[in-house]
Design a binder for these strands. Structure first.
Lengths: 196, 196
DNA sequence: TATCTTTGTTTAACGGTGTTAAATAGTTTA
DNA sequence: TAAACTATTTAACACCGTTAAACAAAGATA
């Protein structure tokens, strides 16, 4: 019964077609512009068929969010591997984070709720949160204070706040100049790193 | 012809009724839950009447945003007047900013695009931007470097990034503990202030 | 092979949205 | 009193997410 296989592959394919169609539409018209009927149009079906593959519209966004986290993670790891010095690794990773946000604006908005409703930090796969990628490096830099989980958390969120805040400002408003962004970013990162 | 006056006053009142009804609904059901028909219901009219007072739904949100900026400004000035020492003033103002965000979550979301679409930084009345409130103080603290407008701008956005970023994280996710928030906030603010 | 069952897909509909045009009621002016 | 104007509503349009019923195609069963 190889036909069963083929049919399963086809189903898997339309499912992924729905996702990439959604992704495409969002890139063109923004999250506000996404509708089930548009997706259906793109994949050359009618709207209700989508419910064979997803519970509802939100489930589609959820899936895209998860894909986003996966990609972000890959980029962060790649950045980490670009050096062996913890301070340099941290900087490279935050810069990669920055780059990810602007290479995938819409996805980032979905993931972190800038201009969007769905935002689901909780969707990040448990075992590979950015937090778990960053903190070990920070720990090695902190040495003495490294034992205190509270301070670690606090410092992580200080990094996170400034980077995410700067991203939000750029994503939502008219944006600052590239030089100033870069200046603030590196300045803040090294500042926090030194304060560890 | 006092009736003309009365009628004008009435129109002004329904206009403001629309705004406060919108505000109320938003506080109860979030921005997603706001609809013209709900507003109309609240003010005991039918939906199309709203178009006599506002161009469209977006115009209502715009107005609320502007009101938000006005209130924020008042709070910032009040905070500034609580001290004469620039460093203390800066801290008090950023803390006031923080407090404003959480006392007016929905409005803040509208103003700065956390979880919302309308966000319009450009709506801040030109002559009373937070920027113009913060930078003079920073200038006095910077003394020598104070002349360089670029560095001033950069430092302002460093403040802004970390505060807004931290707010976003709290507004959008499940939120950190109050102590950690307070710790990060004050830590970051004094850190940046010292770096001036 | 003929019937039954299952699966994939579409059509039609519901209640909701923002928005517009036409109809109506109420008030002011000539 | 008649005409003009203004306030307000009714009805409609095109869209939205979602659901239930109808239908077509395929597979399994007898």
């Amino acid at each position: 019964m190889g036909s069963k296989d083929r049919i399963l592959r086809q189903k898997e394919e339309t499912r992924s077609n729905i996702l990439s169609a959604a992704c495409q539409i969002v890139k063109e018209d923004g999250w506000q512009g996404l509708s089930l009927r548009k997706i259906a149009d793109a994949i050359e079906y009618t709207a209700p068929i989508i419910y064979e593959y997803f519970d509802n519209k939100e489930a589609i966004l959820k899936e895209l969010t998860i894909q986003g986290y996966r990609l972000l993670n890959k980029e962060l790891i790649k950045a980490k591997d670009s050096s062996t010095d913890p301070a340099q690794q941290l900087e490279a990773m935050w810069l990669a984070y920055w780059k990810f946000a602007f290479s995938n604006k819409e996805t980032y908005q979905l993931m972190f709720g800038v201009e969007m409703t769905t935002c689901q930090m909780g969707l990040c796969p448990e075992e590979e949160t950015p937090y778990k990628l960053f903190t070990p490096l920070m720990k090695t830099l902190m040495k003495d204070k490294g034992k205190d989980e509270d301070i670690l958390c606090q410092k992580y969120y200080t990094y996170y706040s400034v980077v995410h805040g700067l991203i939000s400002i750029n994503l939502v408003g008219s944006g600052l100049s590239d030089e100033i962004n870069q200046q603030i970013l590196k300045d803040a990162i090294t500042g926090i790193t030194l304060s560890l």
